[in-house]
Amino acid sequence: MTDHRITAYGARPDDDCTDAIERAVRACELTGGRVVIPDGVFVTGPIRLRSNVELHLSAGATLRFRTDPSAYPIVRTRWQGIECFSHSPLIYAYDEVNVAVTGTGTLDGAAGVDNWWADTKPVDDWNLLLRMVCDDVPVEDRVFAPGHGFRPSFVQPYSCRRVRIEDVRIVNAPMWVVHPVFCSDVLIRGITVDSLGPNNDGCNPDSCSDVVISGCSFDTGDDCIAIKSGRDADGRRSGRPSENIVIESCRFGTGHGALTIGSETSGGVRNIHARDLHITGPAVDHALRIKTNSDRGGLIEHITLHDTVVESVTTSAVLIDTHHAEPTGTHHPAVRNITLSNLQVQVAPRTLEIRDTPESPVHGVNFR
């Protein structure tokens, strides 16, 4: 494997290294190999990975991202379950094969209340996007010009195969942290997410298949792991489920749900197997949270949670809710075949809470 150190392409600590990193990626793309961030603090704009390129951070490296939205070009993305063209994720790959982000260094999104977190959901742009979906506007025409649009995800491989994200520490994300969309063969292993901002979900497989999340640690401002498959009509249009996902040996310290499914579940979620999870609390609301509603629709089935220790949660250890957020739609979801075994709950106001409706009853919850 060939290493391409960004300093060989003109990068210097504390300077803007966007162009140097892009040159290193292009050189690496020709033969395959690693773009190496050496020890030190390097500043960059968005990074676009290509096939057979691994972005590797050495142990003493910090890659700090610019917070000026104008630095981030408009690309195809998915924002809260709806496809559109908006600001590029900080690290992005589109329709690539064999891409990776590795190493024990730090990725710092530098997000805060004076930049990305200042306007969490621009009302006019969000309402426009919802109207576009209602009017069947093609995705290619849902374009938000620079200065508009939405906070980007931190790491987003989109329509990629063979994705690996391993060992890195990720802090201060603008939005969702690790957010693969329409991907297959995804390994997320050993990462540490410490990002307490608004909507800072830790890891969101979104309409993805064949995913392993292993040995990770999460302290987040929203859900820690949240499995999704598109929102409302746009999720039903694409019709891509999240399926065949294994989650194992992870730690959860802060967040709404340790393992959440939803609420964007319109494409369906199935075959999710979680084991050896440790909820250390006390700042986690739920160990397992399933949330959907009649706006979303979709089928959620074959969910298993084994060998999990819950030291403390603030509400219900397990919450299954088919009436989340007071919906008004007619696309009633189905939730069935949930298996919980060797679930050890030490402190919780409730162990199991089910909120369902006559139109969307929960079927087949099994304790073993």
Rank of each mutant, 00 (worst) to 15 (best):
I47M: 04
I47S: 00
R48Y: 05
V53F: 02
V53G: 02
L55D: 01
L55N: 07
H56D: 06
L57Y: 04
S58K: 08
S58A: 14
A61N: 01
A61W: 02
A61E: 02
T62D: 02
T62W: 05
F65W: 04
F65Q: 00
R66Y: 04
R66Q: 09
D68K: 10
P69D: 08
P69Y: 09
P69K: 07
P69N: 13
P73A: 12
P73I: 08
I74Y: 01
R76W: 04
R76V: 05
R76C: 01
R76F: 06
R76D: 00
W79C: 05
Q80L: 13
C84E: 02
C84K: 05
F85Y: 15
S86K: 05
H87P: 02
L90A: 08
L90M: 14
L90N: 02
L90D: 03
I91K: 00
I91Q: 00
A93Q: 08
A93S: 15
D95W: 06
E96H: 11
V99P: 02
V99W: 07
A100V: 04
A100T: 05
G103M: 03
G103Y: 02
G103Q: 04
G105E: 04
G105S: 06
G105K: 01
T106M: 11
T106R: 05
L107K: 02
L107A: 03
G109D: 03
A110V: 04
A111C: 07
A111E: 01
A111F: 00
V113S: 10
V113N: 10
D114H: 15
N115E: 09
N115D: 13
W116F: 15
W117V: 07
W117N: 03
D119P: 01
T120D: 09
K121A: 12
P122N: 13
V123G: 09
D124R: 13
D124W: 05
W126Y: 13
L128K: 13
L129R: 06
L130N: 11
L130K: 14
R131W: 10
M132L: 12
M132Y: 12
V133E: 03
C134L: 14
C134R: 15
C134S: 15
D135K: 12
V137Q: 05
V137D: 01
V139R: 08
E140Q: 13
E140F: 08
D141A: 12
R142T: 09
R142Y: 11
V143D: 03
F144P: 00
F144H: 09
F144Q: 07
P146E: 10
P146F: 08
G147E: 12
G149S: 09
R151G: 05
R151D: 07
P152L: 07
P152C: 09
S153G: 11
S153H: 10
S153D: 12
V155M: 10
V155I: 15
V155C: 10
Y158G: 00
Y158R: 05
